[in-house]
Design a protein around this nucleic acid. Structure first.
Length: 277
DNA sequence: GCCCAGGGATGCG
DNA sequence: CGCATCCATGGG
């Protein structure tokens, strides 16, 4: 993969380790649109337009450095994939999701987004997040920015219910009201164990959501979020019928170590669409 | 009408 | 501790 960068574009030639559709569709990003061979992706108050085909990916944006890091373009995924392909559970999943990259998104946006994600489906999650952007985020012309913490502090429980959060509205309200800008800054300086402890202290954040926030919002790759899909996959692969997510999390984290986050994404993407055989 | 969705909080033993 | 139950809401 050969990458060029200038003030307005990132150009990736022969992108064998980056598939735009796979990366956007594997459940780590909620603010994007795919329209044929073009994609539009938002993060925080920023946006990029991506034109892609089998030979070349062009990312157009005012924030080149931000999206270079966002798509994790300094990391060599071929090494990771070669390692994980040796795992008998993962070979076909890695081959299938060969172009997945784990994005480096904004921590606050991930906290809000994954509180909404709990016991929810992706379409509804996207709709709720979009509602919050339109009603509380800055109007940037062709899109709305994700609301800042101060902007979301203006939202009431009723506002969150209008956004479709249902019973999560109370949790969201309490977490937003208690959260301070400084907490987010501190979070980025903490060790993973302390990040986890802080995150699960927030209302609406349990172990799985905390792990997602760490993986997608704090760059911690040694976590393995276990959701309903991973639970199903685990039972299938190990021929068991457990619902003990703590046990699954512990086992898979020990199995994949520092590559846990990558392994989890390959699993999730491959098995989500009923590819359970 | 039932089941499910990238689960979490609460209460009970 | 582990475990069961409830929780809004829309789509299949």
């Amino acid at each position: 993969m050969n990458i060029e960068k200038n003030n307005t574009e990132i150009i990736i030639y022969k992108p064998q380790d980056f598939d735009v559709v796979q990366t956007l569709n594997c459940g780590q990003i909620f603010r994007f649109v795919i329209d044929g061979d073009t994609a539009y992706v938002c993060s925080q108050d920023k946006r990029c337009e991506i034109q892609f085909n089998a030979d070349k990916i062009v990312i157009k944006t005012k924030d080149v450095d931000y999206f270079y890091n966002f798509f994790d373009l300094d990391r060599d995924y071929s090494i990771i994939k070669n390692t994980l392909r040796k795992d008998r559970f993962l070979k076909s999943a890695v081959d299938y999701g060969y172009g997945i990259r784990i994005i480096n998104n904004d921590a606050f946006e991930m906290i809000v987004s994954f509180i909404i994600s709990a016991n929810n489906n992706i379409k509804r999650i996207k709709n709720s997040i979009e509602y919050l952007c339109v009603n509380f985020g800055q109007n940037k012309g062709v899109y709305y920015a994700f609301p800042t913490l101060d902007q979301l502090k203006q939202a009431t429980v009723e506002d969150f219910k209008k956004a479709g959060l249902g019973y999560r509205a109370d949790q969201m309200y309490e977490t937003i009201q208690k959260l301070k800008q400084k907490d987010i800054l501190n979070l980025k300086q903490m060790k993973p164990d302390d990040q986890f402890k802080f995150l699960v202290s927030l209302k609406g954040v349990g172990e799985k959501v905390a792990n997602c926030i760490m993986l997608f919002g704090l760059g911690v790759k040694s976590v393995f979020p276990v959701d309903t899909w991973i639970n199903k996959v685990y039972n299938k692969l190990t021929n068991t019928v457990t619902k003990d997510r703590n046990k699954i999390t512990k086992e898979l984290t020990e199995r994949y170590q520092d590559l846990s986050g990558f392994a989890q994404q390959y699993f999730f993407y491959y098995f989500r669409d009923n590819k359970l055989s």
